[in-house]
Design a protein around this nucleic acid. Structure first.
Ligand SMILES: [Mn+2]
Ligand SMILES: [Mn+2]
Ligand SMILES: [Zn+2]
Ligand SMILES: [Zn+2]
Lengths: 129, 129
DNA sequence: TCTGTAATTGAAAGAATTTTTCAATTAGCG
DNA sequence: CGCTAATTGAAAAATTCTTTCAATTACAGA
Protein backbone atom coordinates (compact mmCIF):
# COMPACT_ATOMS: atom_id res chain seq x y z
CA UNK A 1 0.00 0.00 0.00
CA UNK A 2 3.00 2.27 0.55
CA UNK A 3 4.29 0.96 -2.74
CA UNK A 4 1.17 2.26 -4.45
CA UNK A 5 1.66 5.70 -2.95
CA UNK A 6 5.35 5.77 -3.85
CA UNK A 7 4.42 4.75 -7.37
CA UNK A 8 1.97 7.59 -7.59
CA UNK A 9 4.64 10.03 -6.50
CA UNK A 10 7.16 8.73 -9.04
CA UNK A 11 4.44 8.70 -11.70
CA UNK A 12 3.76 12.35 -10.97
CA UNK A 13 7.40 13.19 -11.58
CA UNK A 14 8.28 13.56 -7.92
CA UNK A 15 11.28 11.99 -6.23
CA UNK A 16 10.77 9.28 -3.67
CA UNK A 17 13.07 10.64 -1.00
CA UNK A 18 13.68 8.99 2.37
CA UNK A 19 11.91 11.89 4.03
CA UNK A 20 8.80 11.44 1.95
CA UNK A 21 8.62 7.72 2.50
CA UNK A 22 9.18 8.25 6.23
CA UNK A 23 6.16 10.57 6.36
CA UNK A 24 4.15 8.04 4.40
CA UNK A 25 5.08 5.28 6.82
CA UNK A 26 4.09 7.51 9.73
CA UNK A 27 0.72 8.16 8.13
CA UNK A 28 0.17 4.46 7.54
CA UNK A 29 0.62 3.69 11.22
CA UNK A 30 -2.46 5.56 12.40
CA UNK A 31 -5.32 7.62 11.03
CA UNK A 32 -6.28 11.13 12.14
CA UNK A 33 -2.90 12.22 13.44
CA UNK A 34 -1.97 15.78 14.21
CA UNK A 35 1.14 17.26 12.68
CA UNK A 36 3.15 16.69 15.83
CA UNK A 37 2.00 13.10 16.10
CA UNK A 38 3.17 12.50 12.57
CA UNK A 39 6.42 14.25 13.30
CA UNK A 40 7.04 12.11 16.34
CA UNK A 41 6.88 9.06 14.07
CA UNK A 42 9.49 10.36 11.68
CA UNK A 43 12.05 12.23 13.75
CA UNK A 44 14.89 13.44 11.62
CA UNK A 45 12.55 14.77 8.97
CA UNK A 46 12.43 18.55 9.10
CA UNK A 47 9.24 20.35 10.03
CA UNK A 48 9.03 22.12 6.70
CA UNK A 49 9.48 18.90 4.82
CA UNK A 50 6.62 17.29 6.70
CA UNK A 51 4.34 20.18 5.80
CA UNK A 52 5.44 20.07 2.18
CA UNK A 53 5.07 16.31 1.97
CA UNK A 54 1.56 16.47 3.38
CA UNK A 55 0.71 19.10 0.77
CA UNK A 56 2.16 16.97 -2.01
CA UNK A 57 0.39 13.82 -0.85
CA UNK A 58 -2.79 15.83 -0.63
CA UNK A 59 -2.50 16.99 -4.22
CA UNK A 60 -1.87 13.41 -5.30
CA UNK A 61 -5.02 12.33 -3.50
CA UNK A 62 -3.07 10.05 -1.17
CA UNK A 63 -3.70 12.02 1.99
CA UNK A 64 -6.68 13.97 3.24
CA UNK A 65 -6.63 16.81 5.69
CA UNK A 66 -9.38 16.94 8.29
CA UNK A 67 -10.64 20.01 10.13
CA UNK A 68 -12.64 18.62 13.01
CA UNK A 69 -12.99 20.82 16.06
CA UNK A 70 -9.38 20.68 17.27
CA UNK A 71 -6.64 21.68 14.84
CA UNK A 72 -5.65 19.94 11.61
CA UNK A 73 -5.45 16.18 11.34
CA UNK A 74 -4.32 13.97 8.49
CA UNK A 75 -5.33 10.56 7.23
CA UNK A 76 -4.54 8.24 4.36
CA UNK A 77 -7.37 8.80 1.90
CA UNK A 78 -8.69 5.28 1.75
CA UNK A 79 -12.28 4.37 0.98
CA UNK A 80 -15.08 6.82 1.39
CA UNK A 81 -16.00 6.97 5.06
CA UNK A 82 -17.26 9.29 7.75
CA UNK A 83 -16.35 10.17 11.31
CA UNK A 84 -18.01 9.86 14.68
CA UNK A 85 -16.37 12.20 17.17
CA UNK A 86 -16.90 11.73 20.90
CA UNK A 87 -17.47 15.13 22.51
CA UNK A 88 -16.30 13.75 25.82
CA UNK A 89 -13.01 11.96 25.13
CA UNK A 90 -12.28 13.26 21.64
CA UNK A 91 -12.03 9.79 20.16
CA UNK A 92 -12.56 9.68 16.39
CA UNK A 93 -14.04 6.52 14.94
CA UNK A 94 -14.87 5.77 11.34
CA UNK A 95 -17.86 4.25 9.63
CA UNK A 96 -18.18 3.24 6.01
CA UNK A 97 -21.87 2.94 5.52
CA UNK A 98 -22.95 6.29 4.18
CA UNK A 99 -26.28 7.38 5.67
CA UNK A 100 -26.82 10.00 2.99
CA UNK A 101 -29.96 9.53 0.97
CA UNK A 102 -29.00 10.79 -2.51
CA UNK A 103 -32.61 11.26 -3.52
CA UNK A 104 -32.95 13.74 -0.66
CA UNK A 105 -30.10 15.89 -1.88
CA UNK A 106 -32.00 19.03 -2.87
CA UNK A 107 -29.04 20.44 -4.71
CA UNK A 108 -29.30 18.96 -8.14
CA UNK A 109 -32.49 20.95 -8.52
CA UNK A 110 -30.62 24.15 -7.81
CA UNK A 111 -27.97 23.37 -10.43
CA UNK A 112 -25.27 22.65 -7.91
CA UNK A 113 -23.10 19.81 -9.18
CA UNK A 114 -22.23 17.64 -6.22
CA UNK A 115 -18.71 16.26 -6.40
CA UNK A 116 -18.16 15.02 -2.87
CA UNK A 117 -19.40 15.42 0.65
CA UNK A 118 -18.19 15.18 4.19
CA UNK A 119 -20.28 14.11 7.15
CA UNK A 120 -19.30 14.18 10.80
CA UNK A 121 -21.39 12.86 13.64
CA UNK A 122 -20.89 14.21 17.15
CA UNK A 123 -21.98 12.61 20.39
CA UNK A 124 -20.74 10.22 23.05
CA UNK A 125 -18.91 7.01 22.45
CA UNK A 126 -19.74 3.71 24.11
CA UNK A 127 -16.86 4.01 26.58
CA UNK A 128 -17.95 7.48 27.72
CA UNK A 129 -21.53 6.56 28.54
CA UNK B 1 -33.64 38.86 16.57
CA UNK B 2 -30.75 40.82 18.02
CA UNK B 3 -33.02 41.51 20.97
CA UNK B 4 -33.34 37.78 21.55
CA UNK B 5 -29.57 37.36 21.55
CA UNK B 6 -29.06 40.33 23.85
CA UNK B 7 -31.69 38.89 26.17
CA UNK B 8 -29.87 35.60 26.22
CA UNK B 9 -26.65 37.36 27.17
CA UNK B 10 -28.32 39.33 29.97
CA UNK B 11 -30.11 36.20 31.11
CA UNK B 12 -26.77 34.42 31.34
CA UNK B 13 -25.48 37.14 33.63
CA UNK B 14 -23.37 38.84 31.00
CA UNK B 15 -23.32 42.54 30.31
CA UNK B 16 -24.69 43.86 27.06
CA UNK B 17 -21.83 46.13 26.14
CA UNK B 18 -21.68 48.26 22.98
CA UNK B 19 -18.82 46.08 21.76
CA UNK B 20 -20.82 42.91 22.10
CA UNK B 21 -23.87 44.31 20.38
CA UNK B 22 -21.67 45.67 17.60
CA UNK B 23 -20.28 42.19 16.98
CA UNK B 24 -23.80 40.80 17.04
CA UNK B 25 -24.93 43.35 14.47
CA UNK B 26 -21.95 42.47 12.28
CA UNK B 27 -22.84 38.79 12.47
CA UNK B 28 -26.46 39.50 11.58
CA UNK B 29 -25.42 41.25 8.37
CA UNK B 30 -23.99 38.19 6.69
CA UNK B 31 -23.44 34.50 7.35
CA UNK B 32 -20.11 32.66 7.11
CA UNK B 33 -17.82 35.60 7.73
CA UNK B 34 -14.16 35.32 8.59
CA UNK B 35 -12.83 37.07 11.65
CA UNK B 36 -11.50 39.95 9.60
CA UNK B 37 -14.79 40.36 7.77
CA UNK B 38 -16.57 40.61 11.08
CA UNK B 39 -13.98 43.02 12.34
CA UNK B 40 -14.41 45.26 9.31
CA UNK B 41 -18.07 45.61 10.21
CA UNK B 42 -17.38 46.72 13.74
CA UNK B 43 -14.27 48.86 13.62
CA UNK B 44 -13.47 50.29 16.99
CA UNK B 45 -14.01 46.97 18.70
CA UNK B 46 -10.68 45.51 19.75
CA UNK B 47 -9.43 42.26 18.23
CA UNK B 48 -9.39 40.49 21.58
CA UNK B 49 -12.92 41.55 22.32
CA UNK B 50 -14.15 40.19 19.03
CA UNK B 51 -12.54 36.82 19.79
CA UNK B 52 -13.96 36.81 23.29
CA UNK B 53 -17.41 37.81 22.12
CA UNK B 54 -17.46 35.06 19.52
CA UNK B 55 -16.50 32.58 22.25
CA UNK B 56 -19.22 33.86 24.53
CA UNK B 57 -21.87 33.81 21.82
CA UNK B 58 -20.73 30.33 20.95
CA UNK B 59 -21.21 29.11 24.51
CA UNK B 60 -24.66 30.69 24.56
CA UNK B 61 -25.53 28.82 21.39
CA UNK B 62 -26.07 32.05 19.47
CA UNK B 63 -23.12 31.70 17.14
CA UNK B 64 -21.54 28.70 15.47
CA UNK B 65 -17.98 28.39 14.28
CA UNK B 66 -17.36 26.66 10.95
CA UNK B 67 -14.18 24.95 9.81
CA UNK B 68 -14.60 24.54 6.09
CA UNK B 69 -11.45 24.31 4.01
CA UNK B 70 -10.23 27.90 4.45
CA UNK B 71 -9.81 29.22 7.99
CA UNK B 72 -12.48 29.80 10.60
CA UNK B 73 -15.84 31.29 9.73
CA UNK B 74 -18.74 32.28 11.94
CA UNK B 75 -22.50 32.29 11.53
CA UNK B 76 -25.59 33.02 13.57
CA UNK B 77 -26.77 29.61 14.71
CA UNK B 78 -30.21 29.66 13.21
CA UNK B 79 -32.12 26.56 12.17
CA UNK B 80 -30.38 23.31 11.44
CA UNK B 81 -28.92 23.52 7.96
CA UNK B 82 -26.03 22.37 5.82
CA UNK B 83 -23.58 23.91 3.39
CA UNK B 84 -22.82 23.55 -0.28
CA UNK B 85 -19.35 24.87 -1.03
CA UNK B 86 -18.32 25.69 -4.58
CA UNK B 87 -14.79 24.41 -5.18
CA UNK B 88 -14.37 26.94 -7.97
CA UNK B 89 -15.49 30.29 -6.56
CA UNK B 90 -15.63 29.41 -2.87
CA UNK B 91 -19.25 30.46 -2.53
CA UNK B 92 -21.03 28.93 0.46
CA UNK B 93 -24.75 28.33 0.13
CA UNK B 94 -27.12 26.81 2.65
CA UNK B 95 -29.83 24.22 2.43
CA UNK B 96 -32.30 23.24 5.12
CA UNK B 97 -33.61 19.94 3.94
CA UNK B 98 -31.44 17.38 5.66
CA UNK B 99 -30.60 14.48 3.35
CA UNK B 100 -29.51 12.27 6.24
CA UNK B 101 -31.46 9.07 6.53
CA UNK B 102 -31.52 8.41 10.29
CA UNK B 103 -32.36 4.77 9.82
CA UNK B 104 -29.11 4.40 7.94
CA UNK B 105 -27.04 5.75 10.80
CA UNK B 106 -25.09 2.65 11.76
CA UNK B 107 -23.96 4.16 15.01
CA UNK B 108 -26.73 3.41 17.43
CA UNK B 109 -25.85 -0.23 17.01
CA UNK B 110 -22.31 0.48 18.13
CA UNK B 111 -23.50 2.32 21.23
CA UNK B 112 -22.50 5.74 19.98
CA UNK B 113 -25.05 8.29 21.13
CA UNK B 114 -25.53 10.76 18.31
CA UNK B 115 -26.03 14.32 19.52
CA UNK B 116 -25.56 16.31 16.34
CA UNK B 117 -24.03 16.13 12.90
CA UNK B 118 -22.51 18.33 10.27
CA UNK B 119 -22.69 17.75 6.55
CA UNK B 120 -20.93 19.66 3.83
CA UNK B 121 -21.38 19.15 0.13
CA UNK B 122 -18.61 20.15 -2.28
CA UNK B 123 -18.91 20.72 -5.99
CA UNK B 124 -19.64 23.49 -8.49
CA UNK B 125 -22.32 26.10 -8.16
CA UNK B 126 -24.70 27.07 -10.93
CA UNK B 127 -22.75 30.22 -11.79
CA UNK B 128 -19.45 28.34 -12.16
CA UNK B 129 -20.73 25.73 -14.61
C1' DT C 1 -29.88 59.52 40.19
C1' DC C 2 -25.69 58.16 42.21
C1' DT C 3 -22.21 54.78 43.63
C1' DG C 4 -19.55 50.62 44.31
C1' DT C 5 -17.87 46.80 42.31
C1' DA C 6 -17.35 42.97 39.57
C1' DA C 7 -17.27 42.38 34.74
C1' DT C 8 -15.31 43.98 30.59
C1' DT C 9 -12.08 46.07 27.48
C1' DG C 10 -7.80 46.48 24.75
C1' DA C 11 -2.67 47.35 24.23
C1' DA C 12 1.09 44.70 24.54
C1' DA C 13 3.41 40.55 24.87
C1' DG C 14 3.37 35.72 24.06
C1' DA C 15 2.23 31.23 22.11
C1' DA C 16 1.06 28.28 18.40
C1' DT C 17 0.92 27.16 13.77
C1' DT C 18 2.11 27.61 9.01
C1' DT C 19 4.84 29.78 5.12
C1' DT C 20 8.80 31.84 2.74
C1' DT C 21 13.62 32.14 1.67
C1' DC C 22 17.78 30.48 0.08
C1' DA C 23 22.14 27.98 0.34
C1' DA C 24 23.45 23.19 0.61
C1' DT C 25 22.34 18.51 -0.52
C1' DT C 26 20.69 14.63 -3.29
C1' DA C 27 17.70 11.40 -6.34
C1' DG C 28 17.68 9.60 -10.45
C1' DC C 29 18.56 10.22 -15.46
C1' DG C 30 21.83 9.64 -19.08
C1' DC D 1 29.82 7.97 -12.39
C1' DG D 2 28.56 13.07 -13.18
C1' DC D 3 25.00 16.49 -13.96
C1' DT D 4 21.21 18.99 -12.78
C1' DA D 5 16.79 19.99 -11.42
C1' DA D 6 14.33 18.76 -7.43
C1' DT D 7 14.50 18.58 -2.59
C1' DT D 8 15.80 19.62 2.07
C1' DG D 9 15.98 22.31 6.40
C1' DA D 10 17.65 26.25 9.40
C1' DA D 11 16.29 30.65 10.02
C1' DA D 12 13.25 34.31 9.61
C1' DA D 13 8.66 35.86 8.72
C1' DA D 14 3.75 35.69 8.59
C1' DT D 15 -0.61 34.45 10.48
C1' DT D 16 -3.75 33.35 13.89
C1' DC D 17 -5.13 33.08 18.39
C1' DT D 18 -4.38 33.58 23.69
C1' DT D 19 -2.77 35.58 28.02
C1' DT D 20 -1.85 39.42 31.00
C1' DC D 21 -3.02 43.29 33.49
C1' DA D 22 -4.12 48.14 34.26
C1' DA D 23 -7.89 51.15 33.04
C1' DT D 24 -12.73 51.52 32.04
C1' DT D 25 -17.65 50.64 32.42
C1' DA D 26 -22.41 48.35 32.91
C1' DC D 27 -25.71 47.95 36.00
C1' DA D 28 -27.60 46.27 40.68
C1' DG D 29 -28.67 48.22 44.70
C1' DA D 30 -28.98 52.34 47.75
MN1 LIG E 1 -11.01 8.84 8.80
MN1 LIG F 1 -24.60 28.36 7.34
ZN1 LIG G 1 -15.61 9.00 24.26
ZN1 LIG H 1 -19.03 28.79 -7.78
Amino acid sequence: MLEAAIGKMRGGGYKATPQRTAVLRALAEEQHQSLEEIRARCPGVGLVTVYRTLDLLGELGIVRRLDLGDGARYEMAEDHHHHAICESCGDISEFEKCPLDPTLLPLEASDFEVRSHSLEVYGRCAACR
